[in-house]
């Protein structure tokens, strides 16, 4: 046992922060793509579009039913053997793809629950003024469902940021990969991984603060 090497830890922070943009970039890209895909899946499921609904259910079941790490390996190491155009898939792309598909499956279910929770009278009021199904979804139901689903979706985003650390298993040097390299050369494993843990923690806390502010804003219309 040795005393904590605080100087090493302080010096490591700026080194690791260089990799923060990649970590956050992958999470942000994954979140944007997952939001679009999950909204599409949710609307397909709520509208019970024949054929597409079953396909969406299968998709959701598969990506919720298998570990993210397995999915990442499947995309990065497995798919290129089958689909020749993917031969050049890089670790970052595979990670974003994996995060998107995996999280959109979960998010689709939250969004679907939020949509079905909106009072039926909202749909009827929209229909009664002659809005089409698509207009009703876009202008009346989805905005209200967004409010309901936002806290859960923010939690998935936070989860996604932490999950980007799996990219290191695909050879991507992001926050976790960089830490691993630094630790291997200094042999100060405890210090290095403690620093990276603290960095993740601070990011998550900052996001939780934003989440609370956002929820307050979204609830403004519902204050008496």
């Amino acid at each position: 046992m040795h005393a904590l090497n605080l100087d090493y830890m302080a010096g490591l922070v700026p080194v690791l922060l260089d990799y923060l943009p990649l970590t956050l970039g992958m999470a942000a890209a994954g979140m944007v793509c997952a939001l679009m895909l999950s909204c599409l899946l949710a609307v397909i499921r709520v509208s019970r579009l024949p054929g597409l609904d079953q396909a969406a259910q299968l998709f959701i079941s598969f990506f919720r039913g298998t570990p993210l790490l397995v999915q990442l390996f499947l995309f990065y190491y497995g798919l290129p053997q089958f689909l020749s155009f993917l031969v050049s898939i890089n670790g970052v792309t595979a990670t974003i793809m994996g995060l998107t598909l995996h999280f959109s499956a979960y998010m689709a279910e939250s969004i679907r629950a939020a949509i079905t929770g909106i009072d039926r009278s909202q749909t009827e009021a929209a229909q009664s003024i002659g809005m089409t199904h698509a207009q009703t979804m876009r202008r009346i139901i989805l905005p209200q469902a967004t409010r309901v689903a936002t806290p859960t979706l923010m939690n998935y985003f936070i989860d996604m940021i932490k999950s980007t650390s799996l990219a290191f298993t695909l050879g991507v040097t992001e926050l976790m990969g960089a830490t691993q390299k630094e630790a291997a050369s200094s042999f100060l494993y405890f210090e290095a991984f403690l620093v990276v843990a603290l960095i993740y923690w601070v990011i998550v806390e900052a996001l939780s603060w934003c989440q609370r502010r956002l929820e307050k804003r979204l609830n403004r219309a519902y204050q008496r």
């Binding site: 009278s121 909202q122 009021a125 929209a126 009664s128 009346i140 519902y222």
Partner: peptide
């Protein structure tokens, strides 16, 4: 629907507007 208008018992105002 565009030639008729409806007033609901429970108002059914758009809650987010």
């Amino acid at each position: 629907r565009r030639r008729t208008a409806f007033v609901f018992q429970n108002y059914a105002l758009f809650a987010h507007k």
